[in-house]
Simulated scan of single mutants.
Amino acid sequence: MTTPLIEAHDLTKVFRLKSGLFSKAASHTAVNSINLTLAPRDRVGVVGESGSGKSTLGRLLLGLTSPTLGGVSFEGVAHRDRSAQNWKRFRKLTSLVQQNPLSALNPQMTIGEQVAEAVWVHHVDNRKGARERAADMLDKVGLSRSMIDRYPHQMSGGQRQRVVIARALILEPKLVVFDEAVSALDVSVQAQVVALLRSLWQEFDLAYVFITHDLRIVRHLVDRIVVMYLGRVVETGDIRSVYSWPRHPYTRALLASVPTMDPTVRNVAPPIQGELDVSKITEGCVFRSRCPFAIDRCSSETPALREVVGRQVACHRAEEFPRSIMAELEGA
Protein backbone atom coordinates (compact mmCIF):
# COMPACT_ATOMS: atom_id res chain seq x y z
CA MET A 1 0.00 0.00 0.00
CA THR A 2 1.35 3.43 -0.96
CA THR A 3 2.05 5.81 1.93
CA PRO A 4 -0.18 8.92 1.71
CA LEU A 5 1.54 12.23 1.12
CA ILE A 6 -0.25 13.76 4.10
CA GLU A 7 -2.76 12.26 6.50
CA ALA A 8 -4.79 13.83 9.31
CA HIS A 9 -6.55 11.64 11.85
CA ASP A 10 -9.14 12.81 14.42
CA LEU A 11 -7.69 16.30 14.03
CA THR A 12 -9.11 18.67 16.65
CA LYS A 13 -8.19 22.22 17.64
CA VAL A 14 -9.73 23.97 20.64
CA PHE A 15 -8.88 27.60 21.30
CA ARG A 16 -9.15 28.96 24.81
CA LEU A 17 -10.93 32.29 24.73
CA LYS A 18 -9.83 35.25 26.81
CA SER A 19 -12.10 36.03 29.72
CA GLY A 20 -12.28 38.39 32.64
CA LEU A 21 -10.90 37.71 36.10
CA PHE A 22 -14.22 36.44 37.47
CA SER A 23 -15.62 35.07 34.21
CA LYS A 24 -16.06 31.39 33.47
CA ALA A 25 -13.37 29.97 31.20
CA ALA A 26 -14.58 29.62 27.61
CA SER A 27 -13.31 27.81 24.53
CA HIS A 28 -14.01 27.48 20.82
CA THR A 29 -13.59 24.27 18.83
CA ALA A 30 -12.32 25.45 15.45
CA VAL A 31 -11.65 21.98 14.02
CA ASN A 32 -13.53 18.94 15.29
CA SER A 33 -12.36 15.34 14.69
CA ILE A 34 -11.41 15.68 11.02
CA ASN A 35 -9.86 12.86 9.00
CA LEU A 36 -8.24 13.75 5.68
CA THR A 37 -5.82 11.98 3.35
CA LEU A 38 -3.99 13.34 0.30
CA ALA A 39 -1.95 11.30 -2.14
CA PRO A 40 0.70 12.85 -4.41
CA ARG A 41 -0.93 15.11 -7.05
CA ASP A 42 -4.26 15.18 -5.20
CA ARG A 43 -6.27 18.39 -5.51
CA VAL A 44 -8.68 18.94 -2.63
CA GLY A 45 -10.98 21.90 -2.05
CA VAL A 46 -12.09 22.92 1.45
CA VAL A 47 -15.18 25.14 1.44
CA GLY A 48 -17.51 26.77 3.94
CA GLU A 49 -18.50 30.11 5.39
CA SER A 50 -16.14 32.31 7.38
CA GLY A 51 -15.74 30.75 10.82
CA SER A 52 -16.11 27.17 9.62
CA GLY A 53 -12.50 26.27 10.50
CA LYS A 54 -11.02 26.08 7.00
CA SER A 55 -7.93 28.20 7.62
CA THR A 56 -7.25 26.51 10.96
CA LEU A 57 -7.33 23.14 9.20
CA GLY A 58 -4.79 24.40 6.66
CA ARG A 59 -2.45 25.63 9.40
CA LEU A 60 -2.76 22.32 11.24
CA LEU A 61 -1.82 20.38 8.11
CA LEU A 62 1.32 22.51 7.69
CA GLY A 63 2.30 22.29 11.35
CA LEU A 64 1.88 26.03 11.86
CA THR A 65 -0.65 25.36 14.63
CA SER A 66 -0.48 22.49 17.11
CA PRO A 67 -3.58 20.25 17.42
CA THR A 68 -5.40 19.77 20.71
CA LEU A 69 -6.19 16.16 19.79
CA GLY A 70 -5.31 13.90 16.88
CA GLY A 71 -2.36 14.42 14.59
CA VAL A 72 -0.92 14.91 11.11
CA SER A 73 1.62 12.77 9.27
CA PHE A 74 3.57 13.75 6.14
CA GLU A 75 5.17 10.95 4.13
CA GLY A 76 4.63 8.66 7.11
CA VAL A 77 6.29 10.92 9.70
CA ALA A 78 4.03 12.43 12.38
CA HIS A 79 4.43 16.14 13.10
CA ARG A 80 4.75 15.45 16.81
CA ASP A 81 7.75 13.16 16.18
CA ARG A 82 9.75 15.54 13.98
CA SER A 83 13.24 16.64 14.91
CA ALA A 84 14.42 20.18 14.16
CA GLN A 85 16.23 18.89 11.06
CA ASN A 86 13.14 17.02 9.89
CA TRP A 87 11.02 20.14 10.35
CA LYS A 88 13.42 22.00 8.07
CA ARG A 89 13.00 19.33 5.39
CA PHE A 90 9.22 19.47 5.83
CA ARG A 91 9.22 23.26 5.36
CA LYS A 92 11.16 22.78 2.13
CA LEU A 93 8.57 20.33 0.79
CA THR A 94 5.45 22.30 1.74
CA SER A 95 4.22 25.85 1.29
CA LEU A 96 1.39 28.26 2.09
CA VAL A 97 -0.20 30.88 -0.17
CA GLN A 98 -2.02 33.44 1.95
CA GLN A 99 -5.15 35.45 1.20
CA ASN A 100 -3.79 39.00 1.04
CA PRO A 101 -0.66 39.20 -1.15
CA LEU A 102 0.16 42.75 -0.06
CA SER A 103 0.33 41.83 3.63
CA ALA A 104 2.15 38.57 2.79
CA LEU A 105 4.99 40.44 1.06
CA ASN A 106 7.67 42.54 2.75
CA PRO A 107 7.34 46.13 1.47
CA GLN A 108 11.06 46.76 2.06
CA MET A 109 12.31 43.85 -0.07
CA THR A 110 12.26 43.58 -3.84
CA ILE A 111 10.17 40.94 -5.55
CA GLY A 112 13.30 39.06 -6.60
CA GLU A 113 14.68 39.00 -3.06
CA GLN A 114 11.44 37.60 -1.67
CA VAL A 115 11.00 34.90 -4.30
CA ALA A 116 14.68 33.89 -4.04
CA GLU A 117 14.91 33.96 -0.24
CA ALA A 118 13.91 30.32 0.34
CA VAL A 119 16.54 29.10 -2.15
CA TRP A 120 19.52 30.37 -0.20
CA VAL A 121 17.91 29.89 3.23
CA HIS A 122 17.61 26.16 2.46
CA HIS A 123 21.12 26.14 0.89
CA VAL A 124 19.77 25.01 -2.50
CA ASP A 125 21.92 27.59 -4.31
CA ASN A 126 23.99 30.70 -3.65
CA ARG A 127 22.50 34.19 -3.87
CA LYS A 128 23.41 34.64 -7.52
CA GLY A 129 21.91 31.29 -8.44
CA ALA A 130 18.86 32.03 -6.29
CA ARG A 131 18.26 35.27 -8.17
CA GLU A 132 18.41 33.43 -11.50
CA ARG A 133 15.97 30.83 -10.21
CA ALA A 134 13.65 33.62 -9.07
CA ALA A 135 13.75 35.20 -12.53
CA ASP A 136 12.88 31.85 -14.12
CA MET A 137 10.00 31.38 -11.68
CA LEU A 138 8.61 34.81 -12.46
CA ASP A 139 8.52 33.74 -16.11
CA LYS A 140 6.59 30.59 -15.19
CA VAL A 141 3.88 32.51 -13.33
CA GLY A 142 3.44 34.92 -16.23
CA LEU A 143 5.47 37.89 -14.98
CA SER A 144 8.31 39.60 -16.80
CA ARG A 145 11.84 38.97 -15.55
CA SER A 146 12.28 42.74 -15.65
CA MET A 147 9.99 43.01 -12.61
CA ILE A 148 12.54 41.29 -10.39
CA ASP A 149 13.78 44.57 -8.86
CA ARG A 150 10.33 46.06 -8.27
CA TYR A 151 8.76 46.45 -4.84
CA PRO A 152 5.28 45.13 -3.94
CA HIS A 153 3.65 48.58 -4.01
CA GLN A 154 4.74 48.98 -7.64
CA MET A 155 2.61 46.03 -8.78
CA SER A 156 -1.10 45.36 -9.21
CA GLY A 157 -3.06 42.96 -6.98
CA GLY A 158 -3.00 40.22 -9.61
CA GLN A 159 0.74 40.63 -10.11
CA ARG A 160 1.39 40.46 -6.37
CA GLN A 161 -0.67 37.27 -6.15
CA ARG A 162 1.50 35.73 -8.87
CA VAL A 163 4.60 36.75 -6.91
CA VAL A 164 3.27 35.00 -3.79
CA ILE A 165 2.57 31.87 -5.87
CA ALA A 166 6.09 32.06 -7.38
CA ARG A 167 7.57 32.30 -3.89
CA ALA A 168 5.54 29.28 -2.76
CA LEU A 169 6.70 27.14 -5.72
CA ILE A 170 10.35 28.19 -5.95
CA LEU A 171 11.55 25.03 -4.16
CA GLU A 172 9.14 22.78 -6.10
CA PRO A 173 7.22 21.60 -3.01
CA LYS A 174 5.13 18.44 -2.87
CA LEU A 175 2.21 20.11 -1.06
CA VAL A 176 0.82 23.66 -1.18
CA VAL A 177 -2.07 25.06 0.87
CA PHE A 178 -3.85 27.93 -0.89
CA ASP A 179 -5.78 29.88 1.76
CA GLU A 180 -8.39 32.09 0.01
CA ALA A 181 -5.71 32.74 -2.62
CA VAL A 182 -7.98 34.50 -5.13
CA SER A 183 -10.76 35.98 -2.98
CA ALA A 184 -9.21 39.48 -2.90
CA LEU A 185 -8.96 39.69 -6.70
CA ASP A 186 -11.53 40.90 -9.20
CA VAL A 187 -13.27 38.36 -11.41
CA SER A 188 -11.12 38.83 -14.52
CA VAL A 189 -7.89 38.43 -12.53
CA GLN A 190 -9.36 35.43 -10.69
CA ALA A 191 -9.87 33.69 -14.03
CA GLN A 192 -6.22 34.33 -14.96
CA VAL A 193 -4.96 32.96 -11.63
CA VAL A 194 -7.19 29.88 -11.91
CA ALA A 195 -5.76 29.13 -15.36
CA LEU A 196 -2.25 29.67 -13.95
CA LEU A 197 -2.81 27.25 -11.06
CA ARG A 198 -4.12 24.54 -13.37
CA SER A 199 -1.02 24.93 -15.54
CA LEU A 200 1.39 24.94 -12.61
CA TRP A 201 -0.22 21.82 -11.13
CA GLN A 202 0.62 19.96 -14.34
CA GLU A 203 4.16 21.33 -14.51
CA PHE A 204 5.23 20.92 -10.89
CA ASP A 205 3.44 17.63 -10.16
CA LEU A 206 2.26 18.86 -6.77
CA ALA A 207 -0.67 18.19 -4.46
CA TYR A 208 -2.64 21.06 -3.03
CA VAL A 209 -5.42 22.02 -0.65
CA PHE A 210 -7.47 24.95 -1.96
CA ILE A 211 -9.34 26.73 0.85
CA THR A 212 -12.13 29.06 -0.22
CA HIS A 213 -15.70 30.22 0.38
CA ASP A 214 -16.20 30.62 -3.39
CA LEU A 215 -17.79 27.49 -4.85
CA ARG A 216 -17.80 29.05 -8.31
CA ILE A 217 -13.98 29.07 -8.36
CA VAL A 218 -13.14 25.82 -6.61
CA ARG A 219 -15.01 23.58 -9.06
CA HIS A 220 -12.40 24.40 -11.72
CA LEU A 221 -9.40 23.63 -9.51
CA VAL A 222 -9.98 20.43 -7.54
CA ASP A 223 -10.97 16.81 -7.95
CA ARG A 224 -12.34 16.32 -4.44
CA ILE A 225 -14.22 18.65 -2.11
CA VAL A 226 -14.56 18.88 1.68
CA VAL A 227 -17.48 20.94 3.01
CA MET A 228 -16.99 22.27 6.56
CA TYR A 229 -19.46 23.76 8.99
CA LEU A 230 -18.48 24.89 12.51
CA GLY A 231 -15.31 22.82 12.48
CA ARG A 232 -16.89 19.60 11.23
CA VAL A 233 -16.89 17.94 7.82
CA VAL A 234 -20.53 17.67 6.73
CA GLU A 235 -19.95 16.33 3.21
CA THR A 236 -16.97 15.17 1.18
CA GLY A 237 -16.53 13.42 -2.12
CA ASP A 238 -15.73 13.72 -5.82
CA ILE A 239 -16.32 17.29 -7.00
CA ARG A 240 -18.59 16.29 -9.90
CA SER A 241 -20.88 14.06 -7.84
CA VAL A 242 -21.17 16.53 -4.97
CA TYR A 243 -21.95 19.44 -7.30
CA SER A 244 -24.46 17.49 -9.39
CA TRP A 245 -26.32 15.99 -6.42
CA PRO A 246 -25.42 17.46 -3.00
CA ARG A 247 -26.66 15.29 -0.13
CA HIS A 248 -26.24 17.68 2.84
CA PRO A 249 -28.59 20.67 3.30
CA TYR A 250 -25.62 22.97 3.95
CA THR A 251 -23.89 21.93 0.71
CA ARG A 252 -27.16 22.42 -1.16
CA ALA A 253 -27.58 25.90 0.31
CA LEU A 254 -24.00 26.90 -0.55
CA LEU A 255 -24.41 25.73 -4.14
CA ALA A 256 -27.80 27.44 -4.46
CA SER A 257 -26.09 30.73 -3.57
CA VAL A 258 -23.66 30.47 -6.51
CA PRO A 259 -24.61 33.15 -9.07
CA THR A 260 -25.82 31.81 -12.42
CA MET A 261 -25.22 33.28 -15.87
CA ASP A 262 -28.97 33.55 -16.46
CA PRO A 263 -30.07 37.16 -15.71
CA THR A 264 -33.67 36.01 -15.16
CA VAL A 265 -32.66 33.82 -12.20
CA ARG A 266 -32.42 35.72 -8.96
CA ASN A 267 -32.31 34.63 -5.32
CA VAL A 268 -35.29 36.33 -3.66
CA ALA A 269 -34.47 35.02 -0.18
CA PRO A 270 -31.06 34.13 1.24
CA PRO A 271 -30.39 30.40 0.73
CA ILE A 272 -29.13 30.01 4.31
CA GLN A 273 -31.20 31.59 7.06
CA GLY A 274 -29.69 32.83 10.33
CA GLU A 275 -26.10 33.06 11.53
CA LEU A 276 -23.46 30.55 12.61
CA ASP A 277 -24.52 29.31 16.06
CA VAL A 278 -21.50 28.04 17.98
CA SER A 279 -23.69 27.09 20.96
CA LYS A 280 -25.14 24.16 18.98
CA ILE A 281 -21.79 22.53 18.27
CA THR A 282 -21.97 19.91 21.07
CA GLU A 283 -25.70 19.25 20.82
CA GLY A 284 -27.21 17.23 17.98
CA CYS A 285 -26.58 18.33 14.39
CA VAL A 286 -24.47 21.49 14.22
CA PHE A 287 -26.50 22.81 11.27
CA ARG A 288 -29.97 22.11 12.61
CA SER A 289 -30.74 25.66 13.83
CA ARG A 290 -30.45 26.90 10.21
CA CYS A 291 -31.70 23.81 8.39
CA PRO A 292 -35.20 23.87 6.82
CA PHE A 293 -35.20 20.04 6.77
CA ALA A 294 -34.41 19.46 10.47
CA ILE A 295 -36.42 16.85 12.36
CA ASP A 296 -36.60 15.88 16.04
CA ARG A 297 -33.78 13.39 15.62
CA CYS A 298 -31.45 16.24 14.61
CA SER A 299 -31.82 17.79 18.09
CA SER A 300 -30.84 14.70 20.02
CA GLU A 301 -28.42 12.76 17.80
CA THR A 302 -25.26 14.04 16.12
CA PRO A 303 -25.12 12.57 12.60
CA ALA A 304 -21.97 10.60 11.87
CA LEU A 305 -20.06 11.03 8.62
CA ARG A 306 -21.23 8.00 6.62
CA GLU A 307 -21.11 6.60 3.12
CA VAL A 308 -24.01 7.75 0.93
CA VAL A 309 -23.93 6.98 -2.82
CA GLY A 310 -20.17 7.34 -3.35
CA ARG A 311 -19.44 10.17 -0.90
CA GLN A 312 -19.52 10.76 2.85
CA VAL A 313 -22.30 12.83 4.40
CA ALA A 314 -23.16 13.81 7.99
CA CYS A 315 -26.94 14.08 7.69
CA HIS A 316 -29.76 11.84 8.94
CA ARG A 317 -31.82 12.56 5.82
CA ALA A 318 -29.08 12.41 3.17
CA GLU A 319 -30.84 9.78 1.05
CA GLU A 320 -34.08 11.80 0.84
CA PHE A 321 -32.93 14.90 -1.05
CA PRO A 322 -33.82 15.08 -4.77
CA ARG A 323 -31.44 16.08 -7.49
CA SER A 324 -33.75 18.60 -9.19
CA ILE A 325 -32.72 21.60 -7.07
CA MET A 326 -29.31 21.65 -8.80
CA ALA A 327 -30.53 21.32 -12.41
CA GLU A 328 -29.78 24.95 -13.30
CA LEU A 329 -26.15 24.63 -12.13
CA GLU A 330 -25.25 21.61 -14.25
CA GLY A 331 -24.94 23.70 -17.39
CA ALA A 332 -22.87 26.45 -15.72
Rank of each mutant, 00 (worst) to 15 (best):
W201D: 14
D81C: 11
V177R: 01
G157C: 10
V209P: 13
H316V: 11
T2H: 05
Q85Y: 08
L254I: 14
V47L: 06
W87F: 08
R224D: 03
Q154K: 14
Y243L: 01
V46K: 01
A184K: 14
P249M: 01
R232M: 05
P303W: 08
P67M: 04
E328C: 12
V218G: 01
A84P: 15
G71A: 02
H9K: 07
L105A: 02
R127N: 13
L196E: 02
E275R: 13
V286G: 01
R43P: 09
F74A: 09
D186E: 12
Q202V: 14
H9I: 08
V233E: 05
S33P: 07
Q190H: 10
S279F: 13
A39H: 13
Q114K: 06
R59Q: 05
D262P: 09
H123M: 09
T2G: 02
I217D: 00
Q108C: 11
G274S: 03
I272N: 11
S95Y: 05
E320Q: 12
K140L: 12
G70N: 00
L185S: 14
D10I: 13
V227N: 08
V115F: 02
R41P: 05
E283K: 15
L200Y: 15
V124Y: 05
F15N: 00
G20H: 02
K174V: 11
V176A: 04
G284T: 09
K18H: 10
V141T: 14
L143Y: 05
R91S: 02
L221T: 12
V141E: 02
W245C: 07
I211H: 07
S55G: 03
L196Y: 10
G48K: 05
